[in-house]
């Protein structure tokens, strides 16, 4: 199974992506040399603390970085074609058509003054060569697909007439309505009730499996990752710390940061022991330590960690960006 996605070109391929924000006090680098792939039908979970650069990477992919943030170097490839250098209007055509987006807060993602049917049809008419009546039919079908009961009547409702979970279903229908090959879901469940979170994750999973859509699932919730993702990319201070199949990374992390992150996630199986904490906080972007960004908080720090930024995960090669990964054979 793993061989198939090595042979076919991945849907999304990020190579050494670096995003810079020039400020008066120097250049901030929220994304620093990050590389990863997402294959068709695959869900890649991108996890990390707030400010680790995971959303910024997502924004770079859809070409909606807020100025003055910009891509300083690296490449973004969609279906093997470079998209980070496309002119604005071609990039716009790509958004919605090739890349669908789901944002965090469904209460603010929908325009309160437009009927949800109109928001669906305007998206389809912008990308697909279909008639307005055909678009309306597809809008109703799309709402049915995401599990809105009575879609034929609800298509003419306004966003405020739906609950939060239902609105996120509408947002997902909007993201998928032009049948994109990649979905970027930026914290899609963070603003929802726990009971609704599971439903939304299951829905996203089902729809993407059915259509073979690649998903970049950005979250800080390890539970969501464990539930939904096939592979997981852990980010720390703008860099990729560890990447690998979700079972291996969660069960046996080899980067000390991932290990700390797992230790600080509450699990029922672990009983009532005190939760582990990673000492300190993620450094601010304008005060990164020399050497490995994680070394001041790392229990395994040695001299080379303080001197050198450490190895990088280049495309596919390697699993953890660390001089001294935790050796699982010793532990086990």
């Amino acid at each position: 199974m793993k061989q198939t996605h090595i042979m076919t070109t991945p849907i999304l391929s990020i190579r050494n992506l670096t995003v810079d924000i020039p400020t008066r006090h120097g250049v901030l680098r929220p994304v620093n040399g990050v590389s990863y792939d997402v294959a068709a039908g695959e869900i890649l979970g991108v996890v990390g603390e707030s400010g680790a650069g995971k959303s910024m990477a997502g924004n770079a992919v859809i070409g909606l970085l807020n100025p003055p943030a910009h891509i300083a170097s690296g490449e973004i490839l969609l279906n093997g074609q470079r998209i980070d250098t496309l002119p604005r209007d071609e990039m716009r055509r790509l958004r919605g058509k090739q890349i669908g987006v789901v944002f965090q807060d469904p209460l603010t993602s929908l325009n309160p003054l437009l009927r949800i049917g109109d928001q669906l049809t305007e998206t389809m008419l912008a990308h697909l060569d279909i008639s307005p009546s055909e678009a309306r039919k597809r809008a109703i079908a799309a709402l049915e697909e995401v599990g809105i009961p009575g879609a034929a009547q609800r298509v003419d409702s306004y966003p405020h007439e739906f609950s939060g979970g239902m609105r996120q279903r509408v947002v997902i229908a909007l993201a998928l309505c032009a049948e994109p090959s990649l979905i970027i879901a930026d914290e899609p469940t963070t603003a929802l009730d726990v009971s609704v979170q599971a439903q939304i994750i299951a829905l996203l999973k089902r729809l993407c499996r059915e259509r073979g859509t690649a998903v970049m699932l950005i979250t800080h919730d390890m539970g969501v990752i464990a539930e939904a993702a096939d592979r997981v990319a852990v980010m720390y201070a703008g860099q990729l710390a560890e990447i690998g199949p979700v079972r291996e990374v969660l069960a046996a992390p080899i980067h000390p940061y991932t290990d700390g992150l797992m230790g600080s996630t509450p699990l029922a199986s672990r009983g009532k022991d005190r939760l582990h904490q990673i000492p300190g906080a993620m450094p601010r972007l304008d005060a990164l330590p020399p050497g490995c960004a994680f070394h001041p908080r790392c229990p395994y720090t040695q001299d080379d960690c303080r001197a050198d930024p450490g190895p990088r995960i280049e495309d596919g090669a390697g699993r953890a960006a660390c001089f001294h990964p935790i050796s699982r054979t010793e532990v086990a």
Binding site: V101, T108, A126, A178
Partner: peptide
């Protein structure tokens, strides 16, 4: 600055729309 404007852009709507 609102989210739904960002979302409208993310859906690839024309700048005029």
């Amino acid at each position: 600055r609102q989210d739904y404007i960002r979302f409208a852009r993310a859906r690839g709507l024309r700048e005029r729309a």
